[in-house]
């Protein structure tokens, strides 16, 4: 799930696993194109963002123009055209979370990380984003880090969450490439 460190432009665009997943996906639907949105998301998960090379590759695999892929991709707010941090922290500030202190939480993340909305830490480990409702209203305030939910949060829990991911990153990087 975490982006690779290597530049997508210089590598073959998809890993063999991702390529295989795509091949299966496009065949699954009555219409190839139905695979587009999931494909973009999965590609982003692997590459980190929708680089020009990813767009071109997806367009080729589905058989539509790059323009068409961009038209679709730019519609969806989870898809991005620039890299995010390895752990993208998405703080919901929508009404239910707001009522239970989401802004304080968001500010605490800003303080701890030294970045604002859509910022990335210098080491590329974290990025921060204020997002719309993530469907955890009854357990507010809630955040997502990449796809993991953390709910019923308080600002004081922020350092612990960040440390957890730092530890995970450390553990990942000491394991050999490919085992992640």
């Amino acid at each position: 799930m975490s982006p690779k460190n290597t530049s997508p432009e210089t590598m073959s665009v998809f890993s063999p696993q991702l390529a295989a997943r795509f091949d299966a996906l496009v065949e699954k639907y009555p219409v190839r194109r139905s695979a587009l949105v999931p494909m973009l998301l999965y590609a982003q998960d692997e590459v980190g963002y929708l680089s020009d090379a990813v767009i071109a590759e997806v367009a080729r695999r589905i058989g539509i123009t790059e323009l068409d892929v961009r038209n679709v991709a730019s519609y969806y707010s989870m898809l991005r055209f620039k890299p995010a941090g390895r752990y993208n922290i998405q703080v919901c500030t929508n009404i239910a979370c707001m009522l239970r202190g989401a802004y304080d939480l968001f500010e605490r993340f800003e303080e701890e990380l030294g970045i604002g909305h859509k910022g990335i830490t210098a080491d590329g480990l974290f990025s921060l984003e204020e997002v719309e409702c993530i469907g955890a209203c009854s357990w507010a305030p809630a955040i997502q880090v990449n796809y993991d939910f953390h709910d019923e949060l308080k600002p004081d829990l922020v350092p612990g969450i960040l440390d957890g991911y730092r530890g995970q990153a450390h553990a990942d990087s000491s394991r050999p490439e490919g085992s992640r």
Binding site: N94, I95, A96, E132, C133, G135, A136, C137, S138, W139
Partner: peptide
């Protein structure tokens, strides 16, 4: 698609 703010039941 459950996205209406305030809603988390389908979850």
């Amino acid at each position: 698609d459950e996205s209406e703010p305030g809603t988390c039941k389908d979850h």
